[in-house]
Design a protein around this nucleic acid. Structure first.
Length: 270
DNA sequence: CAGCGTGTTGAGGA
DNA sequence: TTCCTCAACACGCT
């Protein structure tokens, strides 16, 4: 499910669904999801706290709860929140919040890759958030250029690295490189400042567009319960193998770059 | 039945 | 030490 626009969308609807609710109980069906603290301790601390607000830092979802504590959730590939029972596979409901008003919030993850952390105090300067890079619109192009100047790995791999930029995932990186006509395997240190400037701008624009699209085409029920409608419609290369490039009509190719499926137009992207 | 995947980490090699 | 690659995580879908 999640790249930055999806995570932001989930946060928006989580605020609608559970903000200001008091956690009466929490059920942890799969303890290994809780990463940095014993799950019984986690439960003990979280129980009775009120959810003040929910926001994102990169692809991490931050639940701000009473007394300086933050719950960090990463959805990874399949994690999702639901506030209803309908349509779920209860087998994959690993964490269940039960609120004082008798409503529930379910964390469901069929692949069990998603993670929870509980942090106290200065959460931005603790792992895992302390490791993160910057969002595209806050990134100084000279800083980025310097950062990439010693890297020979493919530009696509660098753009996916959350220690450099946060938010881009495989889908949007494929799209950004297609828009900017950059070959995905170009060594990072060969990308010019001018190109980096455009990469940052395009990354920001594509994620804004996706966020707004997500916001306008789904309601809260869907946002919390499905990944429908977020991606489709405006993708140019991702999953378009063998289809004609919408710019030059050449066949879109697929290859592996850094272990990830990479779609590109060999004619446009040099 | 085999291959693939929207994300990240850690082991191990160079 | 730093850089880089790749397997692993676990399951559903094609």
């Amino acid at each position: 499910m999640p790249e930055l626009p999806e995570v932001r969308t989930v946060c928006r609807y989580l605020n609608k669904a559970v903000k200001n609710k008091k956690i009466k109980n929490i059920y942890i069906n799969l303890p290994k999801i809780i990463k940095n603290i014993d799950h019984n301790k986690f439960k003990e601390i979280v129980k009775g706290k009120k959810i003040l607000k929910i926001f994102n830092v990169g692809k991490w979802i931050v639940f701000d709860i009473d007394n300086d504590y933050k719950i960090l959730v990463h959805l990874r590939l399949e994690g999702k929140f639901r506030n209803i029972l309908k349509g779920q596979n209860p087998k994959h409901d690993h964490i269940i919040f039960n609120f004082e008003d008798k409503t529930n919030l379910y964390f469901n993850d069929s692949r069990q890759f998603g993670t929870f952390h509980l942090l106290k105090g200065d959460y931005l300067n603790q792992k895992p958030l302390s490791l993160l890079g910057k969002e595209a619109q806050n990134t100084d192009v000279n800083w980025l250029h310097q950062k990439l100047s010693k890297k020979r790995i493919p530009i696509k791999t660098s753009l996916l690295d959350q220690k450099i930029l946060v938010g881009l995932g495989n889908i949007y990186v494929n799209e950004v490189l297609w828009i900017e006509k950059i070959e995905p395997e170009t060594p990072s240190n060969q990308i010019t400042i001018k190109q980096l400037k455009k990469i940052l701008k395009t990354s920001y624009e594509i994620m804004e567009k996706s966020y707004k699209l997500g916001g306008s085409t789904i309601d809260s029920y869907v946002a919390l319960n499905s990944k429908e409608g977020l991606f489709q419609n405006f993708l140019n290369v991702h999953t378009k193998k063998d289809l004609p490039c919408s710019r030059c009509k050449e066949k879109i190719l697929k290859k592996w770059v850094g272990g990830r499926g990479t779609y590109y137009c060999f004619k446009c992207q040099k």
